[in-house]
């Protein structure tokens, strides 16, 4: 079997990170599994990684990059970007309920960043590489995401300071 139950759950979580909601994640997962099954048996060295790529491309196709183009980032100077990395997310505190509220309001790129950072423990450079994006773009989005969470949840999402 191409995907065991653990893999299916991991892929479902990634689908959830992309779509932002469980019904959308279910559809995306179903579509992805069906597409992967089109490949001949044994043709995929790493089915899960392949499935993630298929899933992401599929999601982009579906949404036609309407709002959340990963390449549209804020312009930041190198000096600003040096002060940003995933570690600046470490200091944020937020309750699970608040996160649940915020989740669907994040854009797909932000959810992907959070997914790879939290679940896969990736750095900004690794996330950028995985998403086929520039590191600067990822850093800029992390910076904006942090500011947004802090603004939205005030002191609740505030921090004890940015750990460098």
């Amino acid at each position: 079997m191409l995907f065991d139950r653990d893999m299916l759950n991991r892929l479902y979580r990634y689908a959830y990170a992309l779509s932002g909601n469980e019904p959308g994640a279910g559809d995306l997962l179903q579509d992805t599994v069906e597409r992967c099954l089109q490949r001949p048996p044994g043709a995929l060295a790493c089915p899960e990684a392949y499935a993630r790529r298929v899933m992401r491309n599929r999601y982009i196709d579906i949404t036609r990059r309407r709002k959340a183009s990963p390449e549209t980032g804020d312009a930041h100077t190198d000096a600003e970007l040096l002060a940003i990395d995933t570690h600046c997310l470490e200091s944020l505190t937020i309750s699970r309920d608040m996160l649940q509220q915020a989740w669907s309001r994040l854009d797909v790129f932000e959810r992907e960043i959070l997914y790879y950072w939290a679940v896969e423990d990736m750095t900004a450079a690794q996330i950028a590489s995985t998403l086929g994006s520039r590191r600067g773009t990822v850093l800029a989005r992390i910076h904006r995401l942090r500011a947004r969470l802090r603004a939205e949840f005030g002191d609740d999402a505030a921090a004890e300071g940015v750990k460098r």
Partner: peptide, 25 residues
């Protein structure tokens, strides 16, 4: 409050396919 990473992990781990859906897949 838990930190963001911890909340994220807990939140994402709570997102699971139920057994019936897994059986279907």
């Amino acid at each position: 409050k838990p930190n963001l990473k911890q909340s994220l992990i807990e939140h994402l781990e709570s997102v699971r396919l139920d057994d019936a859906r897994l059986d279907e897949l």
